[in-house]
Design a protein around this nucleic acid. Structure first.
Length: 418
RNA sequence: GGAGAAGUGGGUGAGCGGCUGAAACCACAUCCCUGCUAAGGAUGCGUACGGGUAACUGUACCGAGAGUUCGAAUCUCUCCUUCUCCA
């Protein structure tokens, strides 16, 4: 949620920032208007309520003293009707404001470059050089099938398209990657957490998936429960509606979960292989931090994800997302893209965002700074998407005969004898 | 699955439908006293959103929501959670 006070106080700059992210100018204008309306309605209601309260107090005194209450009761009853109307006006104003405000994305930082889509993202640096192949490298689905690691047809049989099944070394590699990543993150100070895969509406509103993106979520029938699209949701919402002690911060967490996405609107994209699945494994990083800590931790998170790829000897590049490619909740985002020789391009494998106080406002996560309660900053990032890492290993480590070399760092995690 | 009990501020725990935003104790903060391994005293101490330069002040919140009432932590209903007992 954007800061409505700031919007009121500094309308020009807030709306300019939101417009960079493509928010309609009239919508912002409307938000300001509604906010003013609500304020007025609130003052009006509270004034009436104060009158009612004081009359009610009098009422008690009258009774104790045995005075006649009929005249007072008349006034009180009359005021009651007026209050009901005022309350109604306030309620409507609040609902209208909420509906608009909850659907408005975060303001991008000034450092975020302008742009329309991923083509306008800015490459910051490349890490490791892709190796030259003496043959034409294959795409991962071909390698996966040839090695018997992944079965796409049987995934469809069990569920529907965009599901797959891993077998043997494919399955073991996934498990090894998860363990490797969790341990790696733990060494960088991120505490491992195990969280529910189902969350309620409040949690999803807190992190920004709802109300706007319900179409992309799997919802339980007859219940207000959703499968998580990312561990960011449960991890961040762990502290929903809490006021944390200053010394507790930063809280650095990592979690492995399955993630579930309907991929509405991605029809036709990456239909082959395991790049874009409805269910996928991901190891996530989430940090709850003080505002002054958040940029330093952001860089740590990017570095951690990048270092995992380096440890796996996977060439990748780090990219600063432009306004057009920025997610709903993010103030700024850095993507890590891994080199896929089979596809002959870099593909996203991690996305790290600082949402600043956007999610904290929605989820009401604050900390005590001396006397005052301030909103925390929340950060999230993949470290890493497991399936895509496996894809990268297959494509980068393939030999001409289709066999695949296992990265050294994973060998301790794999019992190679079975 | 059935039957009971309970959910109050950081913690423990009182609360008669109006004098309760809420006793008391602990914890915490500041100050005073005193020097000895501690104790005593004073004051302060919830959150959100408003109004005011400020002192201060208004509204709401006692698991959540709805209701009864001029007025509800206190009565009624629904839901959630926890505990105990039974199957």
């Amino acid at each position: 949620m954007i800061d409505l006070k700031l919007l009121q106080k500094d309308f020009e700059s807030v709306s300019a920032k939101l417009m960079r992210k493509g928010v309609d100018a009239t919508l912002i204008e409307n938000l300001k208007l509604k906010n003013g309306e609500l304020k007025k309605a609130k003052v009006n209601f509270e004034t009436l309520q104060a009158l009612q309260n004081s009359m009610s107090k009098e009422f008690g005194a009258y009774k104790r003293e045995g005075k006649d209450i009929s005249e007072l009761k008349q006034r009180v009853d009359a005021n009651k009707i007026v209050i009901a109307e005022a309350l109604d006006i306030q309620r409507v104003a609040h609902e209208e404001l909420e509906a608009i405000a909850m659907a408005i994305p975060n303001m991008p930082d000034d450092s975020v470059p302008d742009g329309i889509d991923e083509d306008d993202n800015i490459e910051i640096k490349k890490v490791l050089t892709p190796k030259e192949f003496s043959f034409t490298p294959k795409e991962h689905w071909e390698l996966a099938e040839q090695n018997g690691w992944i079965d796409f047809e049987r995934g469809v049989k069990l569920a529907t398209s965009r599901f797959s099944v891993s077998f043997g070394m494919g399955a073991k590699l996934e498990r090894a990657l998860i363990n490797f990543m969790l341990n790696f993150n733990a060494q960088r100070g991120f505490e491992e957490v195990s969280v529910p895969a189902l969350v309620n509406r409040t949690a999803l509103e807190g992190t920004g998936q709802l109300p706007k993106f319900e179409d992309d979520l799997y919802k339980m029938e007859g219940q207000e429960l959703f499968l998580i699209p990312t561990a960011e949701v449960p991890l961040t919402n762990l502290f929903q509606d809490e006021i944390l002690a200053s010394e507790q911060l930063p809280i650095k967490m990592t979690a492995y979960t399955s993630c579930f996405r309907k991929e509405a609107g991605a029809a036709g994209r990456d239909t082959r292989g395991m790049i874009r699945q409805h269910q996928f494994h991901k190891v996530e990083l989430v940090t709850i931090a003080k505002p002054e800590q958040s940029e330093e931790i952001f860089n740590e998170m990017v570095q951690t994800a990048s270092d995992i790829l380096t440890a796996l000897e996977l060439p990748h590049r780090i990219v600063n997302l432009c306004t057009g490619d920025l997610g709903f909740s993010a103030a700024h985002t850095t993507d890590i893209e891994v080199w896929l020789p089979g596809q002959d391009q870099y593909r996203e494998i991690s996305s790290i965002s600082n949402t600043r106080d956007f999610q904290a406002r929605r989820a009401k996560i604050r900390y005590k700074d001396g006397k005052k309660n301030l909103f925390v900053n929340t950060l999230n990032g993949s470290s890493l998407a497991v399936g895509r890492t496996l894809v990268a290993i297959m494509e980068n480590n393939q030999n001409e005969d289709g066999s695949i070399d296992i990265p050294e760092v994973l060998k301790p995690y794999l019992d190679m004898s079975v």
